[in-house]
Simulated assay, not measured.
Amino acid sequence: MAQKYRIYINQKVILLTESTPARVELYEQLDQQSFELKSFFSKVSGSSSPLYYYILCDDAKAVLKKIIKSNVLIEAAGGLVKNSKGDYLFIYRNEKWDLPKGKLEKGEKPKEGAVREVEEECGIRIGDCGKKIINTYHVYTLKGEVVLKKTYWYKMKYKGKAKLKPQTEEGITDVQWFDKGRIATVTGNTFPSIVDVLWKRDLLTEIPVPLSE
């Protein structure tokens, strides 16, 4: 199977792919040899340029590794938590719905960091952390420098009944459980990388263009 990876810049996506996108008319192709993430970020960030881009390559994983190696990488981890009722846990931060996550501490393993961040941001104790769902990638600026964040996402279970407590010092103003019927509320006001996670867990009724490729 052809490998594909997505790197997000706000609402825009760069698709690293070993095959031409099925809906190629929606995409602008980028040249693999001349592509440079920092300059591309400066070009499209905050602009009205197209939403979808793709880089056609023989080895998508190798291209991703090259991009990671040539940029500042920040590693983070988080979780998609499901309770005994089948509801999913979301936080509200910076006027958007999000999943609990945060940067890994020095020497911390991704799974350990994911559990710690969920517990700190939501005020609960995770009973079980399962397999990894997906890794997501997005680009932003930190102290004036362009950085690439890699986030490891894990399946988690919670069986308790503790009152949710948002970590306000991290800018989280609300924490809520959502049943599957309310997931559309989240996808209507969240980040593309979060949609990636939900799609991997079959929680979307409609699949956005970059995920359908």
Rank of each mutant, 00 (worst) to 15 (best):
Ala2Phe: 13
Gln3Met: 12
Arg6Cys: 07
Tyr8Arg: 12
Lys12Met: 06
Thr20Met: 12
Pro21Met: 03
Gln33Gly: 09
Gln33Trp: 05
Ser34Thr: 14
Phe35Trp: 09
Lys38His: 10
Phe41Pro: 05
Lys43Asn: 10
Leu51Pro: 02
Tyr52Phe: 13
Ile55Trp: 03
Leu56Glu: 09
Lys65Cys: 02
Ser70Gln: 14
Asn71Phe: 07
Asn71Arg: 14
Glu75Lys: 15
Gly79Met: 02
Gly79Leu: 01
Gly79Ile: 01
Leu80Pro: 15
Val81Phe: 01
Val81Gln: 00
Ser84Thr: 05
Gly86Ala: 10
Asp87Cys: 01
Tyr88Ala: 07
Leu89Ser: 03
Tyr92Val: 08
Asn94Thr: 06
Glu95Ala: 05
Lys96Gln: 12
Asp98Trp: 10
Leu99Tyr: 06
Lys103Trp: 06
Gly107Arg: 10
Arg116Leu: 13
Arg116His: 12
Glu117Val: 00
Glu120Ala: 06
Ile126Thr: 07
Gly127Gln: 01
Ile133Leu: 07
Ile133Phe: 02
Asn135Trp: 05
His138Pro: 03
Thr151Glu: 15
Lys157Phe: 01
Lys157Met: 01
Lys157Ser: 06
Lys159His: 08
Lys163Tyr: 02
Thr168Trp: 08
Val175Ile: 05
Trp177Lys: 00
Phe178Leu: 08
Phe178Gly: 06
Lys180Val: 02
Arg182Val: 02
Thr187Lys: 03
Gly188Trp: 02
Asn189Trp: 10
Pro192Ile: 01
Leu203Pro: 15
Ser212Asp: 15
Glu213His: 12
Glu213Ala: 04
